[in-house]
Amino acid sequence: MSKHVLSILVEDKPGLLTRVAGLFARRSFNIESLAVGTSEIEGLSRITAVVSVDGAPMEQVTKQINKLINVIKVVELDPEAVQRDHMLIKVKTDATTRSQVLEAVTLFRARVIDVVSDAVIIEITGDSSKCAAFIKILEPFGIKEMVQSGILAMGRGSKSITEKVSK
């Protein structure tokens, strides 16, 4: 299994996400994470998909996505690209554990965004390995719930994938 990060520029049309997700499913491509939002160009959205490929070459995945009429562009980002995951984690705390949790928050440059007497909600941004390491540290305290965004990624340097694309 090899992991690939794709940036997919799409027209913002109803059913678009179903088209992309459905394509992955019926071609037996595995999606590890998917994040969708607007791009800097009006009418265009940008999807970041992390795909793990087993057997079928990555090229086949990008070609099939490219065939979707509402897809403008598919770019496979190189592993050096900036990749960030965004997580919210609710951790059990009490008077004795709170300071240890807060210490971990400082060490990982995370942020506490809600505090009650027996729990805190922590926000962390980072690449997957940093987030995974943070979760490992928090687990012994008791993670009550957790939500994450899916990876957002962008190529380094001044180039953009929307160059030569105008609406």
Binding site: P14, G15, T18, R19, G22, L23, R26, I69
Partner: peptide, 12 residues
């Protein structure tokens, strides 16, 4: 939705 996997494209 039903025909999404079996059409080249579709419109509502």
């Amino acid at each position: 939705g039903i025909t999404m996997p079996i059409t080249k494209h579709s419109f509502l």
